[in-house]
Design a protein around this nucleic acid. Structure first.
Length: 109
DNA sequence: CTCTTGACGACCT
DNA sequence: AAGGTCGCCAAGA
């Protein structure tokens, strides 16, 4: 039995992102009050390896699908988002500001 | 133990 | 405005 690593914390937060919403690396790092945005992305890289973590709902602060490159195919991330009703154009989330979800909102729902 | 890596972000030029 | 650089800090080799 091992202690939860930083990844595990990130996984749990990402899993709580509501369908049709997105969040940012920085928001997660801020919510954890630990590490930095880079660590979130780094952790996520491991996450979608089979943890069932919706990593496609995590984008960078500009709403860009910065992580799409790490998916099996660069278009997969966008398609997953579109399946949830999120419009993506030029690898950016439309109405990103409106769709943005902060982990702290989980407490409210 | 030390060095390098890394799906970012803010600052600097 | 656009591009480059530095900082964040945990984990693997």
């Amino acid at each position: 039995m091992e202690e939860p690593t930083y990844y595990d914390l990130v996984y749990e937060v990402v899993r709580q992102i509501p369908r049709g919403r997105v969040t940012t690396y920085g928001a997660i790092a801020d919510f954890l009050a630990l590490g930095s945005a880079r660590m979130v992305g780094w952790a996520l890289n491991k996450s979608f390896s089979g943890y069932g973590v919706p990593a496609h709902r995590v984008v960078n602060r500009l709403g860009e699908l910065s992580g799409r490159i790490h998916f099996p195919t660069p278009t997969m991330m966008q398609q997953l988002l579109e399946q949830e009703g999120i419009e993506v154009v030029d690898n950016k989330v439309l109405d990103f500001k409106r769709l943005f979800w902060h982990p702290a909102q989980n407490l409210d729902e």
